[in-house]
Amino acid sequence: MLNLADFSATPGSAAKNLGVIIDSDLAFDKHISNVTRTAFLHLRNIAKLRNALSLHDAEKLVHAFITSRLDYCNALLSGCSCSNLNKLQLVQNAAARVLTKTRTFTKTRTFTKTRKLTKTRKCTKTRTFTKTRTFTKTRTFTKTRTFTKTRKCTKTRTFTKTRTFTKTRTFTKTRKCTKTRTFTKTRTFTKTRNFTKTRTFTKTRTFTKTRTFTKTRTFTKTRKFDHISPVLSALYWLPVKFRIDYKILLLTDKALYGLAPEYLRDLISCYEPPRLLRSQGAGLLAVPKIQRSSAGGRAFSYKAPQLWNNLPEYVRDSDTVSIFKSRLKTYLFSLAFGN
């Protein structure tokens, strides 16, 4: 018993911090028992509603109430005893059985995308030309010439020579000339030219793009003692042990690229060989020496470099976090189920 400012404090065997129950020997027995008890409570409630839910909606409920609890702070469970990890694995197995309740369930989603593009261009060009030229030339000439000439001459001559002679001569000359000339010239020209040009173009281009995607997920109802691995593989769920390794490796990748807290970045360092070796530029991490594998082997500074160095090179050399997560899950999935 401890006395702190006149208050007596009794040391306990476990303490709760951020939802994680930590015991004195870091076995996490009480924490795992609490997680399994709460998970089974929610799983029973989901099982009552399973007949009224579709697979998609039931899977959302399982991830919200079951998977989230299995993944919360699961990096602390690295190196725990197999009995404790088996308890968590039983929760995941039960969730898979509740989710795949039917005898034979085949989910087939067929997406058929058909794009039919028909382009029709009908061009009709009609050009009609009518050229009419009418020329009428009329020339009328009328020439009239009227001449009237009158000459009246009276000549009187008187001679007196004992004889008286009187000669009177009267001349009247009248000339009337009328000349009329009429010319009428009429020339009519009519030129008519009709041109009709018709050009009809019909261009039809038909494109048909059909893309069919078929996703089929078949689940077979598993009884209590049936093997659950095929169902987990069909659901693409990693077992609990590999989910723990996934979380540790993801934190390691973020720490290397400066996306993790500083206290995690200080726990890992790059491997530098004492002499020039081929592993110098392989992106490996230095694994510290430990005295006890039961205690020191569970530390992040030891477990993270050990798991990181066992990864294939193509997984370690991922450019982004999203690519690393995809490749890492595929690699762990192949380790868990061998496919």
Rank of each mutant, 00 (worst) to 15 (best):
T168N: 05
T146K: 12
F159R: 14
T190K: 13
F189C: 10
T166K: 13
T164A: 03
T136P: 01
K215F: 07
T204L: 06
T140W: 00
R145A: 09
T146N: 14
R199Q: 09
F147A: 11
T212H: 11
R193S: 06
R205E: 02
T140H: 00
R211Q: 12
T220D: 01
T138A: 07
T218W: 06
R205H: 09
H227S: 08
F135M: 03
K155W: 04
T210K: 15
R211G: 05
I228F: 13
T178F: 04
N194V: 07
T198H: 14
R193W: 01
R217Y: 07
T186S: 04
R139M: 01
T162Y: 05
S229W: 03
T192I: 15
T202K: 05
R181N: 14
T200S: 05
T208R: 10
K137Q: 09
T212R: 13
R145L: 12
F183A: 04
T180P: 02
T220M: 01
F135V: 13
T134A: 12
F159G: 02
K155S: 10
T208H: 03
K191M: 04
H227F: 03
T218P: 09
K152R: 13
T198L: 09
T142C: 00
F135H: 11
T216Q: 07
R181D: 12
F171Y: 12
R199V: 15
K221M: 04
F165C: 01
T142Y: 03
F165Y: 08
T212S: 10
K191E: 06
T186N: 10
F147M: 13
F219C: 08
T178A: 09
T178I: 14
R145F: 14
R163S: 10
K155G: 01
T168M: 02
T186K: 04
T192K: 11
K155A: 11
T220S: 02
T214M: 01
R151N: 14
T166F: 14
T154D: 03
T200L: 07
R151F: 11
T184W: 02
T164R: 08
T158A: 06
T204S: 12
I228N: 07
T138F: 01
T218M: 14
K155C: 04
T138W: 00
T216A: 03
D226N: 11
T196I: 15
K152T: 15
R133A: 07
R175W: 03
T146R: 14
C153P: 02
K161I: 03
T144P: 03
R157I: 04
K203E: 09
K179W: 11
T206W: 01
T150A: 14
R145Q: 11
R211T: 02
K215M: 05
T188V: 08
T164P: 00
T184Q: 06
T140K: 02
K197Y: 00
R205G: 01
F225W: 08
R223N: 09
R175K: 11
T212M: 09
F183E: 13
R187A: 08
